[in-house]
Every structure is written in structure tokens, then in C-alpha cells.
């Protein structure tokens, strides 16, 4: 019965809509199977090509956002402009000192964030390899243990 439905386009269409699961079962044409297999093979390729680019882009966006938030450039630009509109020389001195502290502090903060972002990237790159190696080690090891 399943076979006859495959031959009849009207029946096939009906089946697509009503029972998705049945479709997987019924309609695994060779071309589709080929495509699915290709898709699985493409998984690691995608991970280290387009997927990696996406991740890099996201990491860059995150870093850019935090850099804007910390506004270190603004602080450097205004290095010698007194804070809070206090123009006497004492205030200027304190201001320069405060700005230095701010710049150092903010740079440090940004650095930590950068390290975290890079760490996440590193995890993205190494995780599948690590998982594969570990899985292989345990599977092969278990086989050897059994034998």
C-alpha cells in the first residue's frame, strides 16, 4: 500500500501535509538520502568554515560593543581636559591622574572581556575535535578492553 501511494503524486502530496513522520519513512528517495548523507558529511566542514566565520563575526561584534561601552578612546582624547569643569591647576592634576586610572581600569576590563571572548572562540574550535578524540578513545578502548 505504501508503495502505491509513492507512485501517485496526489496521494504523496496528501501524505506530506498530514503525516510528516510517514513522509520520512515513505519518501526517502535516493536523491534525498544522498543529500542527507552529504549534509552529515558537511557538518564538520560547515563548523570550521561558515560556522567559524559566523562565530568570529559575533565575537567581533561583542568586543566592539564592549569597546564602545567602555569608551576608552573618549578618555584618551580628553586626557588633559579637566573633569567636571574644574579648570584650576590642582583639579587638572587630579583629573589627569583620575583619567589615567580610568583608562587603565577600563583597558583591564576590556582585556578580561577579550580573554573571555577568545576563550569562547577557542572552545568553539576545539570542542568538536576534543569530543571526537575522546569518543574515539573511549569507544576504541572499550572495544580493546572487551577483546
Amino acid at each position: 500500500m505504501a508503495g502505491s501511494c509513492l507512485q501517485d503524486p496526489e496521494c504523496r502530496r496528501r501524505v506530506y501535509r498530514v503525516e510528516d513522520l510517514e513522509v520520512y519513512y515513505l519518501h526517502m528517495q535516493p536523491a534525498v538520502i544522498k543529500d542527507v548523507l552529504l549534509d552529515i558529511v558537511m557538518f564538520p566542514v560547515w563548523w570550521y568554515s561558515r560556522g567559524l566565520i559566523l562565530m568570529l563575526r559575533r565575537a567581533a561584534d561583542t568586543l566592539k560593543g564592549y569597546a564602545k561601552y567602555m569608551a576608552i578612546g573618549v578618555w584618551i582624547q580628553n586626557m588633559f581636559v579637566p573633569m567636571f569643569g574644574q579648570h584650576d591647576w590642582q583639579s587638572r592634576l587630579i583629573s589627569i591622574f583620575m583619567r589615567l586610572v580610568q583608562i587603565v581600569g577600563r583597558s583591564f576590563g576590556l582585556m578580561i572581556i577579550a580573554i573571555m571572548v577568545i576563550g569562547a572562540l577557542g572552545l568553539y574550535i576545539t570542542l568538536p575535535i576534543f569530543l571526537c578524540l575522546q569518543a574515539a578513545y573511549h569507544v576504541i578502548g572499550s572495544f580493546m578492553y572487551v577483546s
Binding site: W47, L127, P128, L131, C132, Q134, A135, Y137, H138, V139, I140, G141, S142, M144, Y145
Partner: peptide, 16 residues
Amino acid sequence: PSWTAAAIYLAILSWL
């Protein structure tokens, strides 16, 4: 090496 440990690694891999 154990099947149990292999299972968790493979599980994460499938989820990826």
C-alpha cells in the same frame, strides 16, 4: 575507556 564516557561525548556531539 568506558562505554558510559563515550556516550556523553557522543551525546554532546549529536547536539552540536
